[in-house]
Amino acid sequence: MNTEYGIEKRLRELNKDLHERYRNCVTVAGQILGRYENYFPDFTDHTLLHTLDILDLCNRLIGEQITLLTDDDLYVLMMGALFHDVGMGVSYSDFEEFGRVLKIPIPANDEERAWAVRDYHQELSGLYLKKYWRMFDLPNERYAHAVIQVCRGHRKTDLMDEAGYPVQYEVEQGKTVYLPYLAALLCLADELDISTDRNISFMYDVEKMPSARDRREFRKHMAIHGLELEPEKVVVRAWSMDQEIRDGVEEVCAKLKDKLLMCRRVAAQRSPFTISQEDVELIWEVGV
């Protein structure tokens, strides 16, 4: 994992105050995200490590276009990366409260609740920030809304929607952020964080996972052991002898390609930025 986070360095250079506000949230977000592990020990990693992966991937997707992003763009993106999965770690009482807003059917048991949290977590993250944004020292409610939209946009949200994602959203008078591009970056980076690095194998005993769906999800991730961002394509390297897992990895790559094309389209049509990669290549390795 690359630890040279250009976007964080750039934010520090451009705006020390916003950088400090972000830094103050890192430890706290880590603590909140850590709670999710207690609730769902068998789910794929959504902790601070995943957030760091996402920042690294955003950094690489942005590349030299970083000079076109303002301090506000960088702050909103980084806060979005930090909090996009925070919905996975909401308390039981907040889940009940947010569940009523989202009209989530009341789960019959812990497993159903776990899947409801996973399925709706982008909206839960949004509602969490809407309720608690002040405690994270966001400069004002409009910044909070921008971060919320970036968080929501990482899954199942229409980034072409002009009302929800105006091309330039004003966070302060005369200061705007490229909301659709920032959300597309986070959405794509989240989807790209699929390789085995995300789930350190010794931390999980796949065979003891109670749910067949969990076991299958994990095996797919464990089969993917490399992901490279080339200028024109994403290369996924995988290995498995099990046909069911191979089929699963093919599905993952097809989904990744759909996301890539959607995010490319959002960047091209709704921002002055580009996402250069246009294809996903799956390479099956032999004898790994």
Binding site: R21, R23, N24, T27, V28, Q31, F136
Partner: peptide, 11 residues
């Protein structure tokens, strides 16, 4: 009141 900045100091 305490915000994330205060929590960071406490942590």
């Amino acid at each position: 009141y305490i915000s994330s900045a205060g929590l960071r100091v406490l942590f």
